[in-house]
């Protein structure tokens, strides 16, 4: 009898560890995506509704670089791609991520130049609608490129796991957490730099910043480049198994990623990096733990109830703190 009890306890703690790791990993993806949102919002006051399409496009770049032998439209082969039936080593894979992020950043610059720059000074919602247009325009290319095949991301460790006692810890989850921590650290360091200060000044008052000699256009460029690169990184991280796309770019799952991150950035505050770090983990913990430990009440709570947990948390927090936990309250003047 005592043995059985011990066994139950052991398996309970195993479940707990696995759930915790899953929540932290999911939170890490939310954080990478959320940082992309926040940087663009802070630098340019644009809520980037195109984030879903952009992150999927980033994952597509990655897939093209690592999994395809040839480069579309160009006659020569991709020197980075591993041979048939081989997977890339970890250093090569990381290098490809870096190249992908550079490509995504360039893509961000193009979008910024074509669609955002002409709108400087226009109302917030006009800018948001522009990004919606960008989303609608880019998404068909993603669909077209993924439509007939899922696209492998060539993750070197595939779906392997480490054992931690009885618990299985997928390597991808650990990798996602590390990626998010590095991304968070880089963004925080960036914020403390001279350029980060300029960015904050622009966010505070564009005209005053310009009068102080800050190159506002440059700030816009950097914000979009960095924001899109981070969205791409989130798209790649979310593609690793056993995240839902299972190691590939998924037409079914990737396109809704950004909408799941909205509660995170609202919870933390639209313009707060620390808020995203906190909000990402908080929301993911709530979502995953509710899913795991309330599952026996599934028929009462409704199918897929854990999907709306983030929104419920968000609404509760907003009623108490209308600008999120770390957001800057708007000063209301007459």
């Amino acid at each position: 009898m005592e043995d059985l009890l011990l066994l139950a306890q052991a398996s309970a703690s195993t479940t707990f560890i696995q759930t915790l790791i899953k929540a932290l990993a999911l939170g890490s993806v939310y954080i990478m995506m959320g940082l992309g949102f926040v940087i663009i919002f802070k630098g340019t006051q644009v809520l980037n509704f195109a984030a879903s399409a952009l992150s999927m496009a980033g994952a597509m770049f990655m897939s093209i670089l690592i999994a395809d032998g040839g480069i579309p439209f160009l006659p020569f082969d991709n020197p980075l791609a591993p041979g048939d039936g081989e997977t890339a080593g970890i250093p090569l894979w990381l290098l490809t991520i870096a190249i992908t992020m550079v490509l995504a950043a360039l893509f961000g610059l193009v979008i910024e130049r074509l669609a955002i720059r002409p709108m400087i000074g226009q109302p917030l919602f006009a800018m948001a609608v522009i990004t919606l247009g960008v989303e609608i325009a880019i998404r068909p290319f993603n669909i077209d490129a993924t439509a007939l095949e899922g696209r492998s991301l060539g993750v070197p460790w595939g779906a392997e796991s480490w054992s931690l006692g009885d618990a299985l810890v997928p390597k991808s989850y650990v990798a996602a957490i590390i990626m998010a921590l590095i991304a968070g650290a880089i963004v925080i360091v960036f914020y403390r730099s001279r350029f980060g200060v300029a960015m904050r000044a622009v966010a505070f008052d564009q005209e005053a910043a310009m009068a102080q000699g800050i190159n506002v256009a440059r700030v816009f460029q950097i914000a979009w480049a960095l924001g899109v690169a981070l969205a791409a990184l989130a798209g790649i991280a979310y593609g690793m198994a056993p995240f839902p796309p299972g190691g590939s770019v998924s037409q079914e799952i990737h396109p809704v990623l950004a909408f799941r991150v909205l509660p995170v950035i609202v919870l933390g505050g639209l313009d707060s990096v620390l808020g995203v770090l906190f909000g990402g983990f908080a929301i993911a913990l709530a979502e995953v733990f509710a899913g795991q430990y309330l599952s026996q009440y599934g028929s009462t709570l409704g199918p897929g109830y854990s999907t709306i947990v983030p929104y419920v948390v968000m609404l509760i927090v907003l009623v108490v703190r209308p600008f999120g936990l770390f957001g800057t309250p708007e000063i209301r003047r007459v």
């Binding site: 479940t15 809704v256 509710a290 899913g291 795991q292 599934g298 199918p303 854990s306 999907t307």
Partner: peptide, 15 residues
């Protein structure tokens, strides 16, 4: 039956 819905499927996997 009818339990798989939404984007987060942790509960179904647990069950």
């Amino acid at each position: 039956t009818g339990a798989v819905a939404g984007d987060d499927r942790t509960g179904v996997i647990a069950e």
